[in-house]
Every structure is written in structure tokens, then in C-alpha cells.
């Protein structure tokens, strides 16, 4: 009788049999994992047979952390799960041996540190400059990915373009879901802008105030909008120089040189799934091979489909982003083709 009870489907036996059925040969097969109890009981360790540490630890007294003056004035301990927010993916590219880099990166890091999570900061850098920046990034406490590349460039615009593609291919490779924004290191943000960016579904754009040292004019770039719909684009850039006049290349413009669309590189954000799940956004995947140049792909998508473009703020009157251009000679002697008007 004992023998036969052994075959009765007890819990372990059935578990074993279910495992049996669901195994299949193909590699990434879906196995419906049964719901896990909140705190999985860890596997029992070998029995502690000597003056066990367990006893000693149970009498553990609180360390003196309480007595320390509570250093952190902002002690808000809001319930963490109350308002889950979309992920912000902020991409920053830095110029090789730009001597203002640490200054600008530190300032941008302070701003990004104040943006409520989840935020992922992707910093792309030439390999040679990585160690010093890594040390600085470590101290910020921000969740970041530090991507480096070994190719070297003489043309800063080509370098910036390559860096953007390094960042975008990282997003594609990992299939990250969030709203992507290119934050130039000399950008100064009103924190409110990040919360607006989070609400973007497909594309969003906003005005960027372009200012330079010792210049008289302030140039504001961006769409003119009414109730968050784009109604027009700057037809003619009246100011001197175009958006990519400044040698600081991360102000390179988006959109083909077509006169209609000139979006500042920091003046827009888009849903990352466009990169790795085009059908979802009505994009035929049979688009000519853009796998190599994801950034060009994004530019084309923006230009083609303005209906999905959303303006932040709705009447795009409030400036929430400044781009401060400070001339600094990058000791790399290189030829710049100034496409001046």
C-alpha cells in the first residue's frame, strides 16, 4: 500500500511532472513561471554546529546612526510605489578633450540628480577620456551607462553623430523602453521640462533659447504651436549662423537640410520603442537599411510624421531649456565646414 501511495500526485511529484511537460527543445521557450511568494525563503544553509554567529547577531544593537545629526534636510519618504513614472533616457555626448567638459558635465549631473527617478543617463565618450569622467560620474549617484568608443574623428559633427548612434544602438540592443532626449552638456534646464518630457507618447518638441557669450541676440529655436500641435516651423533663420554654428557640436540640427524642419538636437524627445519596434508606430519595417544609422532613422521618422509631434508646453511660450555656447578652442586642429548662410 505504501508502494502505491508513492505514485499519488503529491505536490513535489506533480511539480516534477509539470516540469517534464513544459520542456521543449527551442531556445527561448516561454515557461509560465508560477507566481512567486513575495519573500522567497532562501535555501537552508549547512547547519551551524559551533558557537554560531546567529546567536551573536540576534543581540545586535542598533549602530549609532540615529545619534548622528540627521544630515539630510529633505526627509520626504513618500510611498515609493504611489506614482510610477515613465523612464527618462537622457543621452549626453562629450567632445574629445574639451577642457570645459568636467565643468559642464558636473553642472548637468547636478540638474539630472534632481530629476525624480526613473532616469537613465547614457554618457558617450571617446575611450581615452573615459577614466577621468568615470570618476566624476561615479560620485553623482545617478543611474548611468558610460559608453566609450575607440574610433577617432577630426570632424566634431561626425564624432557627435557617431556618439549618438552608439547611444541609440545601446537602446536598441537592450530594447529599453522610455522617452529619449539628447541633453547637450552646455544645456541648462528648468526641472519642469523633464516632467513634461515624461508624458510624451511618440514625439515631443519645445523651444530652446540659444545664447552665446558676449552676444546681443537671444535666438529661440523650435516650433510655433497652438494647443500642443505644431502649426509652423521657422522658415528662415534670421539670426547670424544656424543652429550648428557653434563649434560645440551638440547643437547640430536635426532633420535633413530641408528648410521646413529645423529642430534643435536638444529640442525634441521620442519614444525609444521606435528604434526597436517600428511596426508599433506604424512604421513599415521594410524601411531602407537604417540599422547602421539609427540617428538618421529617427530624424526621418520625425520629419515624415508631424501629426504625432506634440509641443511642450502647449503654446510653446515658456522657455525651459537654455543652450549656453561658450567659445573654447579645442586644441584638436580640424577643418570645420562652416555652412554659414
Amino acid at each position: 500500500m505504501g508502494f502505491f501511495t508513492g505514485f499519488a500526485p503529491t505536490s513535489t511529484a506533480s511539480l516534477f511532472s509539470r516540469q517534464l511537460i513544459s520542456y521543449r527543445q527551442i531556445k527561448n521557450l516561454g515557461i509560465s513561471a508560477e507566481a512567486v511568494k513575495a519573500t522567497e525563503k532562501p535555501v537552508e544553509p549547512a547547519s551551524l554546529n559551533n558557537r554560531s554567529l546567529m546567536a551573536e547577531m540576534s543581540t545586535e544593537n542598533q549602530t549609532t546612526t540615529e545619534q548622528l545629526a540627521d544630515a539630510d534636510p529633505k526627509e520626504e519618504d513618500s510611498d515609493p510605489e504611489s506614482n510610477p513614472r515613465n523612464l527618462l533616457i537622457v543621452i549626453t555626448t562629450t567632445r574629445s578633450n574639451d577642457r570645459f567638459r568636467e565643468f559642464f558635465l558636473t553642472r548637468l549631473a547636478h540638474t539630472l540628480r534632481l530629476v525624480p527617478p526613473p532616469l537613465l543617463w547614457i554618457v558617450v565618450e571617446p575611450h581615452g577620456d573615459a577614466p577621468k569622467t568615470a570618476e566624476m560620474l561615479r560620485k553623482t549617484g545617478i543611474m548611468y551607462r558610460h559608453l566609450t568608443f575607440r574610433e577617432n574623428f577630426t570632424d566634431p559633427e561626425a564624432e557627435a553623430h557617431h556618439q549618438r548612434n552608439v547611444a541609440l544602438s545601446h537602446i536598441e540592443h537592450h530594447r529599453l523602453t522610455g522617452i529619449v532626449h539628447f541633453a547637450g552638456i552646455s544645456n541648462i534646464y528648468d526641472l519642469q521640462l523633464f516632467e513634461e518630457i515624461r508624458e510624451i507618447e511618440v514625439f515631443g518638441t519645445w523651444p530652446v533659447a540659444m545664447v552665446s557669450a558676449n552676444r546681443k541676440r537671444v535666438m529661440v529655436e523650435g516650433p510655433s504651436c497652438r494647443s500642443s500641435k505644431v502649426v509652423g516651423w521657422p522658415v528662415e533663420d534670421l539670426s547670424y549662423g544656424t543652429t550648428n554654428d557653434a563649434p560645440n557640436t551638440d547643437t547640430g540640427s536635426v532633420g535633413k537640410a530641408s528648410k521646413a524642419t529645423r529642430i534643435n538636437i536638444s529640442g525634441f524627445a521620442f519614444n525609444s520603442s521606435i528604434l526597436w519596434d517600428p511596426e508599433r508606430w506604424g512604421r513599415p519595417t521594410s524601411v531602407p537599411d537604417t540599422s547602421q544609422d539609427s540617428f538618421k532613422f529617427v530624424q526621418e521618422v520625425i520629419v515624415e510624421d508631424e501629426t504625432k509631434l506634440r509641443c511642450i508646453p502647449p503654446d510653446s511660450s515658456k522657455i525651459m531649456l537654455w543652450h549656453l555656447h561658450i567659445p573654447r578652442v579645442i586644441p584638436l586642429l580640424f577643418r570645420r565646414n562652416q555652412n554659414r548662410r
Binding site: V36, A46, N49, N50, M54
Partner: peptide, 25 residues
């Protein structure tokens, strides 16, 4: 040195079958 170090107090043990729920755990 499992008889001297209480590893389950120090680390987190996750069964191989529970890997898909690692983030929840």
C-alpha cells in the same frame, strides 16, 4: 566556510527556476 559564515544573512539566494522573477524578488 558555510559553518562559520551565515551566508543567507549576508547574500540573497534565488532558485534557478525563479530567475524570471528576479526583479520582483
Amino acid at each position: 566556510f558555510a559553518d562559520a559564515i551565515p551566508w543567507e544573512e549576508i547574500g540573497v539566494f534565488v532558485a534557478e527556476k525563479d530567475v524570471p522573477n528576479l526583479d520582483s524578488i
